[in-house]
Every structure is written in C-alpha cells, then in structure tokens.
C-alpha cells in the first residue's frame, strides 16, 4: 500500500516521466480514496498550468528596465 508521502513523490515524478504501470495504478487507486492527495495533485497541476500560461503570454506582467539600465544599454549599443 502506498502512503500519502509516497504518493506525493510519485505524483511529482509522474510530471517528469511516465511511471511504470504498477505504480501508476497504485497512485490512481490511492487518489480515489484520498482527498488530500487528490487535492495535492490538482494544485501541482494548477501551478504548472499557470506557469505555462505565464510563459506563453507576450505580456508578462512585471517590472520594466530602469531608466539607468536603459541608458547604459543604449550607450553600449552605440559604441560597440
């Protein structure tokens, strides 16, 4: 029987490689009866999905280059 601790490790691993069949079945079975681990999986996937959308968007929210950096870079380009 897999413990929750085992399942969290295997859930992460399954995001990086395909688990052997026996493991996969063990994890799926555990998720049917354990709402915490099921929730844990949903949250890891939400984080993955959010990060992917963030990287896919052209308009990443965030700060801009400082005026100093902008000026410095502009100068370095003008005098290569």
């Amino acid at each position: 029987m897999l413990s929750c601790k085992d399942v969290t490790r295997l859930l992460s691993e399954s995001m990086d490689r395909s688990l052997p069949l026996g493991r996969r079945i063990g994890v799926r079975f555990h998720l049917l009866i354990c709402r915490f681990c099921a929730r844990y999986e949903r949250q890891l996937l939400l984080i993955r999905e959010t990060v992917r959308r963030l990287t896919a968007t052209e308009e990443i929210p965030g700060e801009t280059l400082s005026a100093e950096a902008r000026e410095r870079i502009r100068k370095s380009l003008a005098t290569p």
Binding site: I60, P61, G62, T64, L65, I73
Partner: peptide
C-alpha cells in the same frame, strides 16, 4: 532595440 524589446526581454529574464 532597447525601446522596442528591452522591457520584454527584461521581464522574460526576471521570470
């Protein structure tokens, strides 16, 4: 370039 792409590249790197 700096005006056009600077902020985008900066945010890309900061992420």
């Amino acid at each position: 370039w700096v005006d056009r792409y600077g902020d985008y590249l900066f945010r890309y790197t900061m992420l």
